[in-house]
Design a protein around this nucleic acid. Sequence first.
DNA 1: TTGTGACTTTAAGTCCGTG
DNA 2: CCACGGACTTAAAGTCACA
Lengths: 75, 75
Amino acid sequence: MEIREIFAHNLRALRKTKGLSQEELAHEAGLDRTYISSLERQIYGASIDVVDRIAKGLAVEAADLLRCPEAEATK
Amino acid sequence: MEIREIFAHNLRALRKTKGLSQEELAHEAGLDRTYISSLERQIYGASIDVVDRIAKGLAVEAADLLRCPEAEATK
DNA sequence: TTGTGACTTTAAGTCCGTG
DNA sequence: CCACGGACTTAAAGTCACA
């Protein structure tokens, strides 16, 4: 499983959980709306700086965004 | 605490634990020798692709490299 | 509310070397 | 074995108008 896929999935899932739109999250994280969109569609491999800013916007830990549900199985 | 700092610390600590040189890890992860050095000195903020490749080279999860020991306190 | 293409600027990442 | 430098190529960061 690609790390981008894991990140994109966790990002979208957590954003929905918090009830935020891409626009609202973008504002919280100090990023552009379309950039969040790009990350969710796996256009880019985000840098850890961006992961951190998004994590703060979602009020979670950076590590949570890279955590794979099936980590124990794929290791 | 900066995410780069956390990453750099975890990277160096885990690499030492595994008994690998920067050169050996670079080879394992398919990265440049000097780049690993740069990451440990916090010159660059790595992309999640690089985090993932390094994690594989160290035989750990990507999330482990971004995990902060004092996460609960700094949140 | 989100996806997408086009675009420019900045930083990542490689490869050569040195002490 | 590692810190550090210069020069280089590629990918990400960041913004916009439009569907």
